[in-house]
Design a protein around this nucleic acid. Structure first.
Length: 484
RNA sequence: GCCCCGGUAGCUCAGCCCGGUUAGAGCGGCGGGCUGCAGACCCGUAGGUCCCGGGUUCAAAUCCCGGCCGGGGCUCCA
């Protein structure tokens, strides 16, 4: 099934038409995180981008089955657990991934990232992984060394092709730590043998745990079937992680690619430098959520094309808060005109045509390799149009054209994952309207002190009044007032 | 050493793949408007050697070549 979307595929390094293998259903896998610490803005960017992709597909009528994994056992988790629980490591280590998974999901909820179809965990799929490894060993694509199992990259035709790496270059520049027993420094562990004091799972090669690259192949094919439509993650996963996933699946399934489209999101830097533990410049998403509107954070991420790096910057999030405020204001103004507007009006044709044009531009932007900055710009243009041509000329609008504009606003909002807070309690609306009428009569009698007091006091509550276009409009500042 | 990406208004970014009106948007600035004030609203406005140099072309921000600067990957990383 052809979709209007054209998207860059890392596997071919070109922009391609996005086709689904099965009409009406898109199956995608996004590499999740290792829950050993707070999620940071980089994780959030990836999640928000794929959430947008998912929402746009849904807008186009596609049922999206999105799977995101948690690597809930690995060296770093053990390290943190050992630090926290010492000798109780074996009995309590799982509290570490459990804690950070819960927090991650809370952050995602706050960012309006829709829940995935499944969140498979390594620890819940070990038996499947063991079966895979067993099969790979039997076929001679992997070998056992002291209870560990390594994947033999020489068994894969064109290893390195996926990520554009040349094997000899990899060897030359190799900061590869040669593990004893590996036949080739580029071979990687499918199964890591147990060390005393660590959690373990049983296997034909002794106690141990699965290796990272294998996990994602096993879980994605288990939950989605192969081949599936798209596989994604951060740019930094291209090599070695995705190269190795492709290699494993290639020998296991004999498929050139076990996912058709490979989508990678640019990294988030801070002051021109990569976020890293050693530089101590990691920005946890929780900190950002404490200070800024989640919708503004979404828009901030989406205001840079997904393949470009973002240099993280707080003041740009504030700029997005201003943008959002303006869009909510347009929305609220429309609602205020609704009651008194006639059913139909002379300006209907023009307004509806314009609304349609904004929607088409919006779709075209997203179709062009998910050009979210251009799409956001259309949303802003729509908001400006509403203010200048509708709100300022209220005599031209009707219930019909207002509802069309609200629909378009709503569609765009749903795709971008913003405007989640549009609902305004009707009782609140009546109360505000009454207060405004009182204030208006005060103004007519030039009792400006009293009129200004009302405006100021409402403003403190987050209800912002503005006198323009010959009437008083108001909107609700969603950051300051929680709506039902 | 090898590979990749970016360099467009004060700031954040579109446009480049498919070369062609006076290079766009938001934020910020400035000036007006709006039954007084305010304004988060409206109107207007300033602000750009499109990193540099060659080349291709009737025509280059856009394509090609070579530089410069910044960043990333090649080890765990989203």
């Amino acid at each position: 099934m052809d979709l209007p979307i054209r998207i860059f595929n890392t596997a071919t390094k070109t922009v391609e038409q996005f086709r689904l293998m099965k009409a009406g259903v898109a199956r995608g896998y996004v590499c999740g995180l290792t829950p050993y610490d707070e999620a940071h803005v980089g994780h959030a960017r990836v999640a928000v981008f794929f959430d947008l992709f998912r929402r746009y597909l849904e807008y186009l009528g596609v049922n999206v089955r999105l799977v995101t994994n948690f690597t809930d056992i690995d060296d770093k988790i053990i390290e943190v657990a050992r630090r926290e629980y010492g000798n109780d490591l074996v009995s309590r280590w799982y509290e570490v991934p459990s804690r950070y998974i819960k927090k991650y999901l809370d952050y995602m909820d706050a960012l309006y990232v829709k829940r995935a179809y499944a969140y498979p965990k390594v620890t819940e799929n070990v038996q499947d992984m063991v079966k895979w490894i067993d099969e790979l060993v039997k076929r001679g694509d992997a070998y056992v060394v002291d209870g560990s199992v390594y994947f033999d990259i020489t068994k894969v035709p064109n290893y390195g092709e996926f990520s554009g790496q040349k094997i000899d270059e990899l060897m030359a520049g190799a900061r590869v730590e040669p593990e004893p027993g590996k036949r080739n420094p580029l071979d990687f562990a499918l199964w890591k043998s147990w060390k005393p004091g660590e959690p373990w799972w049983d296997s034909p090669w002794g106690p141990g745990r699965p290796g990272w690259h294998l996990e994602c192949v096993v879980m994605s094919s288990k939950y989605l079937g192969v081949p599936f439509d798209f596989h994604g993650g951060g740019q930094d996963l291209v090599f070695p992680h995705h190269e190795n996933e492709v290699a494993i699946a290639k020998v296991y399934y004999g498929l050139r690619l076990f996912a058709r489209y490979w989508i990678h999101v640019g990294l988030v830097n801070v002051k021109g430098e990569k976020m890293s533990k050693s530089l101590g410049n990691i920005i946890p998403i929780g900190d950002v959520l404490n200070k800024y509107d989640p919708e503004a954070i979404r828009l901030y991420f989406l205001n840079t094309h997904y393949r470009k790096p973002i240099d993280f910057n707080f003041s740009s999030i504030e700029a997005m808060e201003n943008v959002l405020r303006g869009i909510y204001a347009s929305h609220d103004y429309l609602l205020q005109l609704m009651d008194e507007a006639p059913e139909r009006g002379s300006g209907d044709d023009e307004v509806v045509n314009e609304a349609f044009r904004f929607m088409v531009n919006f779709e075209n932007a997203l179709n062009d390799d998910l050009n979210t900055p251009a799409a956001i710009s259309e949303l802003v243009n729509l908001s400006n149009y509403i203010n200048s041509r509708v709100v300022y000329q209220p005599e031209r609008v009707s219930k019909y054209s207002i509802s069309q504009l609200l629909n378009v606003l709503s569609y765009m909002g749903q795709v971008l994952g913003v405007l989640n807070k549009v609902t305004v309690n009707p009782t609140l609306v009546s109360i505000i309207n009454t207060i405004i009428r009182v204030r208006q009569s005060l103004r007519e009698r030039k009792l400006y002190d009293a009129a200004d007091l009302i405006r100021d006091e409402l403003g403190k509550l987050g209800i912002v009044l503005g006198d323009y276009g010959g009437r008083t409009y108001w909107f609700v500042d969603r950051r300051r007032i929680k709506l039902p």
